[in-house]
């Protein structure tokens, strides 16, 4: 072990038996806990304190915090930077990697760096098109897609080699995740696509926003038929709506978000729209947690971290053992 100026750095830890990464998220999921994750809104700043402050209200209620990678193709502090800061101050972090901005050489290197900095969970994403963001003139990379990225990271982890076949002396121990979007077209193929992600190496899944529970139930029924809930942990994505106007704007401007009219109408007709939006989110969680095969929830509240802990407490899912482990009806 090399001595540094500050003494001997910690060794790259070994992974406990029965786990692939040793992350707390993985441990909780494997133990059957109903898991809660949330995402941190990345600061437009170089100050680590901004990251700590944003993370603080989430830390009390969630098992892991997602560090988004320029989501919506908008530039913010990098997910690697956030992941490193938070991992080193004791949070369990999900490092999001999108295929939009970096090629295979950069990504494989970044992942090794992230692992060295203490990151144990990686979420592999395709990424929104550059046109959706604040710098639409950027060059879209998309060298990998989310599925070939998953397979590559699994190869690095399990075979201990880069895609070139060159050996990695100390392979990164990672809990690999992927996203799925059950509520957008082509609905009938979404479960098959999930199967492909699991096949490629996904250990856990975080879905996009779900506002349409019947549609999600249909999706989960097929997922259970395919046995996917046994092969990967599925966390359902939810989030509060601020107002009817915001919801309509999101629906037509942010890629991949389906919000039924009924939900928007309910917010619109309420006296306090923001309260109602939160209420709907709480109800969604309560409905979703009872669906067989759901291992947890992923709460996304853009620029509203303070709401996350309220929502989670009100929904009564804190410290909830996982109920109904995949019992097909």
């Amino acid at each position: 072990m090399t001595e540094t100026l500050f003494g001997a750095p910690p060794r790259y830890p070994d992974v406990p038996d029965g786990q692939v990464s040793g992350s707390r998220l993985e441990k909780a999921l494997r133990a059957g806990k109903f898991v809660i994750t949330s995402e941190l809104n990345p600061p437009d700043s170089a100050d680590p304190d901004d990251v700590y402050q944003a993370a603080q209200p989430l830390g009390e209620v969630v098992d892991a915090i997602n560090a988004t990678d320029a989501s919506g193709a908008n530039c913010h502090m990098s997910s690697l930077g956030i992941s490193a800061l938070l991992s080193q101050s004791g949070y369990d972090v999900v490092y999001q990697v999108s295929c939009r901005d970096r090629n295979r050489i950069a990504i494989q290197g970044d992942v090794l760096g992230a692992a060295a900095l203490g990151v144990r969970n990686v979420l592999c994403l395709t990424g929104d098109g550059v046109g959706a963001g604040d710098q639409p003139g950027a060059k879209p990379v998309f060298d990998f897609d989310s599925i070939s990225l998953l397979r590559t990271l699994r190869t690095m982890r399990d075979q201990g080699v880069f895609l070139s076949g060159r050996k990695i002396t100390r392979p990164p121990k990672l809990f690999l995740g992927a996203a799925e979007n059950p509520c957008v077209t082509p609905h009938e193929w979404r479960p098959e696509r999930l199967a492909k992600k699991v096949e490629a190496g996904a250990d856990f899944i975080q879905t996009n926003y779900i506002y349409d529970v019947p549609l999600f139930e249909k999706f989960m029924a097929r997922v259970r038929d395919l046995g996917l809930d046994k092969r990967a942990f599925i966390l359902a994505g939810v989030g509060p709506i601020a107002s009817a106007k915001a919801a309509r704007w999101i629906r037509s401007n942010v890629p991949g978000i389906h919000i039924p009219d009924a939900v928007i109408d309910r917010v619109e007709q309420a006296e306090k729209p923001a309260e109602e939006g939160k209420r709907i989110c709480v109800e969604l969680i309560q409905q979703i947690r009872d669906i067989a095969g759901v291992a947890g929830i992923h709460v996304m509240a853009y620029r509203k971290e303070h709401l996350v802990s309220e929502i989670i407490r009100e929904a009564g899912v804190l410290q909830m053992g996982r109920r109904k482990i995949a019992q097909p009806t």
Binding site: C99, T126, G127, P140, F142, S146, R193, N208, P255, G256
Partner: peptide, 14 residues
């Protein structure tokens, strides 16, 4: 446009 080789992205429109 994203030259995906393994299935649709999550942004497919209605």
């Amino acid at each position: 446009p994203k030259t995906l080789r393994n299935g649709p992205c999550g942004g497919v429109r209605p």
